Simulated scan of single mutants.
Amino acid sequence: MTLQTALFSNSVEPEANAAVADFASSRIWGEPGRFDRYCTLGVFQNEGLIAGVVYHNYDPQAGVVEMSAGAVSKRWLARPVLREMYSIAFDQLGCQAVIARHAEDRCDLRRMWKAVGAVEYVIPRLRGRNAPAEVVSILTEEAWKASPYMRH
């Protein structure tokens, strides 16, 4: 499986940036248009978009960005894509930490974030009274660089 990636922003390719964000939004919430002020990483296979990563809620003073992703297959999350995904946050955006939010019952996402070195905090009722608790995962630059995914 050959995967290719491309980074998009509103200043360079606004249409592609919006398309990747809408792709991710549709997979996460079932509808496009849920992101505001973002840049994206598109993951392509056979020239088709199979995953979109959205970098949003960027706070350059704190050095923090939130990352959300949606995909049509779990196979997109290969080691080279992981490296590029976090390199954008840490090396290009200059962040010291990356945050992700997901439902407590998303064991696959929780396992992936823990595998790269993130610490998680479970917050009851943040998604609503009868919804699963919200998990906030935070990955620091130091934890990412010490993770097994950075070994060659």
Rank of each mutant, 00 (worst) to 15 (best):
C39R: 15
V119L: 11
S26T: 14
A6I: 04
G63M: 12
S137Q: 02
M150D: 04
A115G: 02
V12T: 14
V53P: 02
A16K: 10
A18L: 14
L93Y: 09
V72L: 15
F8P: 05
E142Y: 02
V12W: 03
S26K: 07
Y149N: 01
V72K: 11
A78K: 06
A18K: 14
G70F: 10
V53R: 01
K74S: 08
A24N: 02
Y55N: 08
D36P: 00
W113D: 06
D91L: 07
E15V: 12
W76G: 02
E15L: 10
M150V: 03
F44R: 10
E13A: 09
G128I: 13
M85S: 05
W113K: 05
V64C: 08
D108E: 13
R151C: 02
Y86I: 01
L7K: 10
W144V: 05
G42D: 06
N130I: 02
G52A: 12
L139K: 06
I50E: 15
R111E: 01
H102R: 00
Q96K: 14
L126D: 09
F44P: 09
N57A: 14
F23C: 10
C107N: 04
G94L: 06
S137I: 00
Q45Y: 03
V43Y: 06
A89W: 02
Q61D: 10
V116Q: 00
A133T: 04
A78G: 03
R34P: 01
E120P: 01
G48T: 11
Y38P: 02
E104D: 09
